[in-house]
């Protein structure tokens, strides 16, 4: 980055072996954030590719959209599962709510870049303002996800008749409402398991991000970074936050579109 304020060279006490040099022209913290993100990319990729793998091992529902019923014999069509939005009960509005969630997360990523840009200019007021917007976006996204999970777990009014092995080890055929880790009304058990695990792991990352953002917002507001002489922490937390957005782009495509 061609800016006047970076962490590099701020502390002349740190020698070449203490992080005082510039490997790859990036500061120690930024470099380590990138390598952490690379390892996190592999974690998420493994989870998402597992989703693809399990998904192709099941037949896909091929009938007409109107007559879709959930069954553990075939993989459901996402737009028929994720079709609810808050405060409007029992109406089929496919994918609108996740669309909103995606919009919120992308916008919070945009406000994060603006905060980083303001940090390069040492503009404390702008940094604080944009970090606050980002924080708001993150919290809104998490709230949306909480509703999404709650709806997924409680299910629809109708439910589905599913034949499965219950926890007493008997094969039963009964109406199932909502979802848990052993049976769900939408599709095979693996469908809900993967949904919980992958969106849950992503939500965990968002939660961590919100904590980091709050910390960053607080420190920027009380002038810690001003005293330090650079706003690099905003940049590092920004990298993490964009990564969370990046993962959501893939989760969105694989879970809700395909």
């Amino acid at each position: 980055m061609s800016t006047s304020a970076t962490a590099i060279g701020v502390s002349p006490k740190r020698g070449v072996w203490g992080g005082g040099n510039e490997p790859l022209k990036a500061s120690y913290g930024k470099l380590m954030m990138w390598f952490f993100l690379l390892s996190d990319i592999f974690t998420f990729a493994a989870l998402l590719i597992t989703y693809i793998s399990i998904r192709v091992s099941f037949p896909v529902y091929a009938g007409p959209v109107e007559s879709f019923v959930g069954s553990n014999e075939y993989w459901p069509v996402p737009e028929l599962v994720f079709d609810a939005i808050p405060f409007i009960h029992g109406v089929h509005i496919p994918l609108a709510f996740v669309g909103l969630m995606t919009f919120i997360l992308i916008m919070s990523s945009v406000t994060m870049v603006l905060a980083v840009e303001a940090g390069h200019r040492n503009d404390k007021n702008d940094v604080v303002k944009w970090l606050l917007w980002t924080l708001l976006g993150g919290i809104t996204f998490l709230s949306c996800q909480a509703w999404e999970w709650s709806h997924f777990i409680h299910g629809t009014d109708g439910g589905s008749v599913i034949t499965y092995v219950n926890n007493l080890g008997r094969v039963v055929t009964e109406a199932v409402y909502g979802a848990n880790l052993s049976v769900n009304e939408y599709g095979p058990a693996a469908f809900a398991q993967l949904f919980f695990f992958i969106t849950g792991f992503h939500g965990f990352h968002v939660t961590l991000g919100v904590f980091l953002l709050f910390l960053c917002f607080y420190q920027a507001a009380v002038g810690v970074y001003e005293k330090r002489g650079h706003y690099e922490m905003v940049e590092k937390i920004g990298l993490y936050w964009h990564f969370v957005d990046l993962v959501w782009v893939f989760v969105f495509t694989l879970f809700y579109l395909i």
Partner: peptide, 20 residues
Amino acid sequence: WKAKYIMMEFMHLGDEAKPL
């Protein structure tokens, strides 16, 4: 394509040193 935009424009990976 979207991932490319996020990594190159938002995370500024394109502006980093080539080895990184």
